[in-house]
Amino acid sequence: MTEPNDKSRRGFLGAAAVGAAGLGVAAIAPGLHLIEVSQASAPSQGASSKVRWGMLIDTTKCASGCDACVKACNTENGINEVLKDPRQASQWIRKIDLKDPKSGIAHSLPMMCQHCEHPPCVDVCPTGASMKRADGIVLVDRHTCIGCRYCMLACPYKARSFVHMTLTEQNPEVPRGQGCVESCTFCVQRVDKGQIPACVEACANAEHNAMLFGDLNDLNSAIAQRVAQVKTTQVRADLKLNVGVRYQGI
């Protein structure tokens, strides 16, 4: 379930890496260091509009009280600051517990940026810092974010957080900082390397396998096949945002 469902893309990346490394080795000259070899490899093709990254969350498998996905997200993305007021802390992914007051049926599920096809945050951003990549991943460009928080008002999922303090403990691959708005990136730094998001990996490692990541456009991918077979829900489907994160079992 957690196997990468975009084998062709991964395979291509792998082959490209080997090829590039080969070129690098061939071009290597005395006095050159390894670090330059990595820099000499050809850049990746970038996000393709043929791909639509998405996630399917099976709430019947998601355990209440388990927060493996949240912990993995915090580790991967360096979300480690402590704020006096917990309401000021950043949460890229959170666990929500639902209870139907009539039937008493309970669900547990992770909630994060839903990576909408028509993201309200992108519509309202005055500077264009909120943006959607060709492959459907919604990101904040912190180079142009002015910290107005209008996107937080516009997001129906409360997926965005504002960084309330100076940060120094970032991971090199996940820049984030004070005064900018941020949210789940689908672990774009991993996805671009052909890996799956940290939360999905952690869910599998915890043997819940409630999260599935892949290309919704690739009919052969596990996620596309599951979405075609089972009844899935988009949260706030009434808004017609065509989200990238689907839920099963609610």
Partner: peptide
């Protein structure tokens, strides 16, 4: 009050016309 008040000039140089703020 902006989170990055030092960059307010970006609001004038990068205008997103789908945004009411824009």
């Amino acid at each position: 009050d902006l989170g990055r008040a030092d960059r307010v000039i970006i609001a004038a140089t990068h205008v997103n016309l789908t945004s009411v703020f824009g």
